Simulated scan of single mutants.
Amino acid sequence: MVKKEQPIEMITPPNMLRVKVGGRIGPIDEKAIERAEAALDDMKEVFSNWLENEVEKLEDAATHVARDGINSPAGETLFARAHDLRGMGTTYNFPIVTRMAGSLSKLIETEEKRAIAPTKLALAHTHAIRAALRQGVRDDQNPVGKALAEELESQVLDLVAEFEDQPAMRAAG
């Protein structure tokens, strides 16, 4: 006995996104874009102040690391500050800060890495970030900023490679 195939029924669900958004998007309002860009320009000073405040917090944590050591709770605080700056630098038009803070974060992201990380290298990152902000070095188009970021990253990569080559460290980290 041959079984009869059931006819296929296509169900098209309603496009709820279109209902919520209100249909097609109209033409681009160039004036609105200009106003938004002007508002962002007006906020550059505010962005600068926010970034300055975050770098001050990083430096405060670095001061505690210099006094108490990178394996102290200050090391964890330094990581948290570097991690925050890694996310903010590019937003505030300082991608070089994002790059340097990312390198510092990679250096001290775990307790195990902080155990082998040279305090001087962590502090060098902090000083480099401050120098970039003070000198207005925003990105790696500046040859000194680029060279400094590359050197910091190179030292961190060498140290992290050593860390990852140690079987006991890999098991712990």
Score class of each variant (00 low, 15 high):
E45L: 14
V46W: 12
H83R: 07
R130S: 05
L40W: 11
D42N: 12
N93F: 12
K113E: 09
E54H: 15
I108A: 05
R99M: 11
K120I: 10
V65R: 01
L157E: 15
R99Q: 12
D140H: 13
A161P: 00
D68C: 02
E150Y: 13
L157C: 07
R99T: 14
A115Q: 08
G75Q: 03
M88P: 00
K120P: 00
I96N: 08
S48K: 13
I96V: 15
G145H: 04
H125R: 05
D84N: 12
Q135Y: 10
N142A: 13
E52G: 10
V46T: 15
I28S: 07
I70M: 02
G69S: 08
A39D: 10
K106G: 12
E112W: 06
P95D: 07
T98F: 05
T63G: 11
L58R: 03
E111T: 14
L121Y: 04
L85D: 01
L159W: 02
E37T: 11
I28N: 09
D29Y: 08
A32S: 09
V160C: 04
A122G: 03
V46D: 11
K113S: 06
W50A: 14
G145S: 02
A38Y: 09
R67F: 06
A115G: 03
L40M: 13
R35K: 13
M100C: 11
V97M: 06
D139Q: 01
E153A: 14
A115I: 05
G89F: 02
E45Y: 11
I96D: 04
A32Y: 09
V137D: 05
L78T: 03
A74I: 02
A66P: 00
A117G: 08
E112S: 11
P118Y: 06
H127I: 09
E76I: 06
G69N: 07
A124C: 05
K31S: 13
A149M: 08
T63V: 10
L133I: 09
R134G: 08
G136Y: 04
G87C: 04
V65A: 02
L104F: 04
Q135F: 11
V144T: 12
L152D: 01
I116D: 05
G145N: 02
A149I: 07
N71I: 10
D140W: 08
V97N: 03
L123N: 02
H125W: 05
K44T: 11
I116R: 06
N71Q: 15
L121A: 02
G102H: 05
D140G: 14
M43A: 15
G75I: 06
A66L: 07
T77V: 15
I28T: 14
T91G: 08
I70D: 04
M100G: 05
L104N: 01
